[in-house]
C-alpha cells in the first residue's frame, strides 16, 4: 500500500492522513535504525523526528526509482551519520580545548545499554555496541542493515547503492574488525 503511486501522490499533496499512515508504519523502523548508530535513546528520538521532517519536506524529490522504504532508510542513515560526524567534530574541539586548558567540560565516554537487551547480556551487548561504533561508516551500515534490520543483501545493496559483491565485502570486513575489537573484551572476561 505505502509503495503505491496513489499513496506517494497523496504524500506529495501533503495529505495529513497519508503522512499519519507513513509515520505509523515507519516510526519504529526509523527509531531502531538510528538507535543502533547514535546509541542514545533521547538523541535517537530527536533524530527520528528530524528524519520525518526531512521526509515531509523533500517528498517532492522522491522520483519513485527506488522503493519508498529504501528512500526512507537512506534519509535515516544519512541523518544519523551527519549527527555522528558533528558529534565527533565537537569532541575533537573539546579535546584541543582540554589540551590548552580552556575547557572545563570533561569528555566522558558513556557506554550504551540498549533498552532491548536482557540484564544477563548487558555486558556483552555493551562490548558489541562499543566495537560497532568504531567500525568505518560503510561497514557499520552494511552490518546493521543485514544483521540488525534483517534485510536481504538485495535490499541492503539498493539502500547503500552498492553491488551485492561489494556489500558482501563490507560485511566480511566488518566482521573481521569486530572480532579484533571483541578479542580484547574476551581476554578481559
Amino acid at each position: 500500500m505505502t509503495e503505491s503511486v496513489e499513496f506517494i501522490a497523496l504524500l506529495k499533496k501533503r495529505d495529513d492522513s497519508a503522512f499519519n499512515q507513513l509515520l505509523e508504519l515507519y516510526q519504529h523502523m526509523v527509531y531502531n535504525s538510528i538507535l543502533n548508530i547514535v546509541q542514545h535513546e533521547q538523541d535517537a528520538e530527536d533524530l527520528s523526528q528530524e528524519v520525518f521532517i526531512r521526509i515531509f519536506k523533500s517528498i517532492d524529490s522522491f522520483r519513485g526509482d527506488a522503493k519508498l522504504s529504501t528512500w526512507i532508510y537512506r534519509i535515516t542513515y544519512t541523518t544519523a551519520l551527519e549527527w555522528e560526524r558533528k558529534k565527533k567534530a565537537g569532541k575533537a574541539i573539546n579535546y584541543f580545548k582540554n589540551l590548552i586548558g580552556i575547557n572545563e567540560q570533561k569528555d566522558s565516554i558513556a557506554s550504551f545499554d540498549h533498552p532491548g537487551v536482557s540484564i544477563e547480556n548487558k555486558e556483552m551487548a555493551r562490548a558489541l555496541f562499543k566495537a560497532l561504533s568504531q567500525l568505518p561508516e560503510q561497514q557499520r551500515i552494511a552490518f546493521l542493515l543485514i544483521k540488525s534490520e534483517g534485510l536481504s543483501y538485495q535490499q541492503a545493496s539498493e539502500i547503500m547503492n552498492k553491488s551485492i559483491k561489494s556489500l558482501e565485502g563490507l560485511i566480511q570486513r566488518a566482521k573481521e574488525n569486530l572480532k579484533l575489537q571483541l578479542n580484547n573484551f574476551y581476554k578481559n572476561n
Binding site: 519504529h28 527509531y31 531502531n32 538507535l35 543502533n36 540498549h114 533498552p115 532491548g116 537487551v117 547480556n121 556483552m124 551487548a125 562490548a127 558489541l128 560497532l132 552490518f143 546493521l144 544483521k147 540488525s148 534483517g150 566482521k175 569486530l178 572480532k179 571483541l182 573484551f185
Partner: peptide, 11 residues
Amino acid sequence: IIEYISTIEKQ
C-alpha cells in the same frame, strides 16, 4: 557476540 545483534528486541 557478533550474531547477538540480530536477537536484540526492537524498541
